[in-house]
Amino acid sequence: MKMAEKRPLDDTELDGLFAAARSTGPEPSGDLLARIMGDADAKTAAVTRVSRPEAGRDVVRARPGLLATLLGLIGGWPAAAGLMTATVAGLAIGLATPDTLDDLTGGVLTSVTGYELEDFMPSYGDLLEEG
């Protein structure tokens, strides 16, 4: 008797088997889900415990930025505030030129008499003439 020839399954038939496998896949039990979530909770708790002291160390180790370095050089924020006050005051005085300031400086700052370049520079003209 001739044996019936076995024709391999075609793609459509195989796809039917794959679809059946997908639809009958094992559903995780409540116990398994609880164990996995328990692991996650334990991990979260461990991270929380570890991260606090580490955060403290990070602050100590942190390299100061440019602003912090400059502030350190002049003595910190109080010194920076004083410096800023003096700068603003100087600017205001310069713009307003109050009368009291004029009195103190003997009218030099607001004098109508101008100064020429020769007033500030020594003249070497005599030396040139002789030489």
């Binding site: 995780p28 889900l33 979530m37 909770d41 979260t44």
Partner: peptide, 23 residues
Amino acid sequence: AFGNGDAGAARALTLRLTPRVLG
């Protein structure tokens, strides 16, 4: 989000990924 301490994210990931991993 879970890495940043969000426990709800872990629950969502568990429900979403466990069936695939188990299968």
